[in-house]
Simulated scan of single mutants.
Amino acid sequence: MDLEIRHLRVVCAIAEAGSLTRAAASLRMTQPGLSAQLRRIEAMLGGALFDRRQSGAAPTPFGELVIARARAILPGVEGLLADTARHRRSGSDRIRVGSVGAPLLGHLLLAVGALLPEADLTSRCQYSPVALLDDLAAGRIEAAVLGDHPDQELPRREGVALHTIVTEPVFALLPAAHPLAAQDEVSLADLLTEDWAVPRPDGDRTRECWASLCAVTGRTPSAPYEAEGRQLIEIVRAGLAVSLCQATFIEVPGVVVRPLAGNPLWYRHILAWRHDGPLAPRGTEILRRVVDGYLAACPDSPAYARWRDLNPEDRSVI
């Protein structure tokens, strides 16, 4: 992992707050998540930045050096990003869209393309919704498909509108030959007896949310495999582990999707754009088209389609 501007912001936030707990609150992170990120930053830089004490976090001499440099660097970087963002926004025919791994990107691109056919439309994907939200706030993209968990909501950014499309349950992802695949739904307790494949913790709070859910049961799953996307699917397909997935995940040969009994975990799909951006005047129509596309695609995931039939009161689509 390379040092990034967001890491410097984290270091400065801890220095200003004087404790990891207060810094985590200001950054809308959990304290364990912030502690883990700080350890990775310290490993990259090659030394401890703070002395952790009961009274708070005090910079080490090495940390004072890093903090001083970070405070000198960040204003210039922020100014550069703001100036370039204003310059880019001057060309209203450019529409740049970012997306996490979610089922809404295609529907958003189709909606924008239909409503603004003359626009120069591009997209890029990224794992972290927070990084995309920062890009949106800075004007590096005009719209984004984001996601979070209802009890770990994304932070608000000035000038950015967040629109919830749907909150859907999280399902189990299993090898097709796994005994649990024969069941209509899977209990979390049964999953916790298996090895898990999990996403990396940096940049996204999905893993934290999974861990919090498991902590309620008093058990911690064995998670020997860290992977994302296609690699995670291949680990599950090989029969090495189980995992969790979005309800709209489309089954591929070798894996199956099953609802979790009791629906203990949820995921929220969000569309976002700038208040002063080119999509704002078309927002209502874009939302309608994306929702229609989402609903039309739900039958492509048979497990989710069955779940929706059985749980009509939980169809929380706007």
Results as ranks from 00 to 15, higher is better:
Gln37Lys: 06
Gln37Ser: 00
Leu38Ala: 04
Arg39Trp: 02
Glu42His: 10
Glu42Leu: 09
Ala43Arg: 14
Ala43Tyr: 02
Ala43Ile: 01
Met44Arg: 12
Met44Ala: 10
Met44Gln: 15
Leu45Ser: 09
Leu45Val: 05
Gly46Tyr: 10
Leu49Asn: 00
Leu49Asp: 03
Asp51Ile: 07
Arg52Lys: 12
Arg52Met: 05
Gln54Met: 04
Gln54Ser: 09
Ser55His: 12
Ser55Gln: 13
Ser55Asn: 03
Gly56Val: 09
Ala57Met: 03
Thr60Asp: 00
Thr60Tyr: 05
Pro61Trp: 09
Pro61Ile: 08
Phe62Tyr: 11
Phe62Pro: 04
Gly63Glu: 06
Glu64Asn: 07
Glu64Val: 07
Leu65Ala: 13
Val66Gly: 01
Ile67Met: 02
Ile67Ala: 00
Ile67Leu: 13
Arg69Trp: 14
Arg71Thr: 10
Arg71Glu: 15
Ala72Val: 02
Ala72Leu: 09
Ile73Gly: 01
Ile73Ala: 12
Pro75Trp: 07
Pro75His: 03
Val77Lys: 01
Val77Pro: 01
Val77Ala: 11
Gly79Ala: 15
Gly79Thr: 12
Gly79Phe: 03
Leu80Gln: 13
Leu81Phe: 13
Leu81Trp: 09
Leu81Ser: 02
Ala82Gly: 01
Ala82Lys: 08
Thr84Trp: 08
Ala85Lys: 00
Ala85Pro: 11
Ala85Gly: 15
Ala85Leu: 02
Arg86Tyr: 01
His87Trp: 05
Arg88Gly: 07
Arg89Asp: 10
Arg89Glu: 11
Arg89Tyr: 03
Gly91Gln: 14
Asp93Ile: 01
Arg94Phe: 06
Arg94Tyr: 06
Val97Glu: 11
Gly98Gln: 00
Ser99Tyr: 08
Gly101Phe: 08
Gly101Tyr: 06
Pro103Asn: 02
Pro103Lys: 00
Pro103Trp: 05
Leu104Cys: 11
Leu104His: 04
Leu104Glu: 11
Leu105Cys: 08
Leu105Lys: 08
Leu105Pro: 05
Leu108Asp: 03
Leu108Thr: 02
Leu108Arg: 00
Leu109Trp: 04
Leu110Ala: 15
Leu110His: 14
Leu110Glu: 15
Leu110Met: 07
Ala111Ser: 15
Ala111Thr: 14
Val112Met: 04
Val112Pro: 06
Gly113Arg: 03
